[in-house]
Amino acid sequence: DISIAIQCLETVFKISSEDTHLAVSQPLTEMFTNSFCKNDILPLSNSVPEDVGKADQLKDEGNNHMKEENYAAAVDCYTQAIELDPNNAVYYCNRAAAQSKLSHYTDAIKDCEKAIAIDSKYSKAYGRMGLALTAMNKFEEAVTSYQKALDLDPENDSYKSNLKIAEQKLREVSSPTGTGLSFDMASLINNPAFISMAASLMQNPQVQQLMSGMMTNAIGGPAAGVGGLTDLSSLIQAGQQFAQQIQQQNPELIEQLRNHIRSRSFSSSTEEHS
């Protein structure tokens, strides 16, 4: 009988129903309900089986859009799936991948955080957050994210590779002389298009004159010192002039080189979506 239980509690703790100063502002059930209502990361789901099934179909449609590189359509499908089943971490993680493809990195990170809030052991969410953080040049945070992904999935080669890249980028930006840009010189020098372009450029009288001046300055000729290559501003200007010549000779190669550098910024190998 509940009245007996109340009497026991009153006897043990020396309290009674007249001690109103001990009362809380709201019942326990109301506190519980309000705590869910205020949580904007994990909405209280009232999904019915029909909604869950439809959400899974929408997720599959989104995955197909990803394969076809229709990233905006994929985002729309995943968003609809989330509305039907808001506590499914996969939908947020998949939408994060689509958002990254659209360069919406901030949105991608938010989706990864929501996926992790639902499933703290979801390695793929940490991995995809690492990619978005790397793209935003937040290398220290990216390293932390990849490390967490590897803790959960130690054999994942993609996480290992991307972690190394993020660590290298972090060292570059942390170094006093780091530029944040790393060229793969071996790959560049062995590029037949680059070799052909360089040979063509060397036949250009203006380039020959420019290179002659640079060599004279480099060995301490008359122009060395103030105004020479030991002058940082002159060195930068010489580099800009040389880049302009390359742009005029072979603009397609410049774009190829840019894409090559971008592609090495982080490895986002093709992955299956859940």
Score class of each variant (00 low, 15 high):
T144W: 01
E10S: 10
P222R: 02
K164G: 08
S161V: 11
T106L: 10
F32N: 06
H273E: 08
A166F: 12
D119H: 06
N156W: 03
L181D: 02
S182Y: 06
Q245W: 07
A89Q: 05
S17K: 05
Q241Y: 07
L188E: 04
P176K: 04
T79M: 06
A89I: 09
R264G: 12
I15M: 09
I116T: 01
D157M: 10
M215A: 11
A193F: 05
E69F: 07
Q203D: 11
Y159R: 00
C112E: 03
L253C: 04
L84E: 06
E255P: 00
R171H: 08
N162W: 00
Y159W: 07
H260D: 12
D107C: 07
Y78R: 05
P176T: 02
K169V: 00
K114L: 09
A223W: 07
K101V: 03
V52W: 03
Q26M: 14
K101H: 12
L131F: 10
D19W: 02
T270L: 15
Y105F: 15
R264P: 00
S196F: 14
F36T: 01
A198P: 01
E141N: 13
I41S: 13
N217I: 02
E141A: 15
T11G: 06
I4L: 15
A166H: 08
S233I: 11
N88A: 10
D19H: 14
N162T: 08
S268K: 04
V24H: 02
E61H: 06
I2Y: 11
C37Q: 13
F266I: 15
S45T: 14
K59M: 13
A218C: 05
A81V: 07
S45E: 10
A117L: 02
K110D: 06
F183K: 01
D40I: 13
S145P: 14
P222N: 09
G227M: 08
N63V: 14
Q203W: 01
A198S: 11
C112T: 04
E68V: 13
Y71N: 14
N87I: 15
A193D: 14
Q26K: 09
G227V: 13
I261D: 01
K114V: 01
S158D: 15
M214S: 02
L150W: 04
S3K: 11
D40P: 02
A89F: 09
I261L: 12
P49F: 00
H104T: 04
T11C: 10
E271Q: 14
S47C: 11
G127H: 05
I82M: 07
P192E: 07
L257C: 10
K59N: 11
T20M: 13
D76N: 12
N190T: 08
G127W: 00
F32V: 13
E255Q: 13
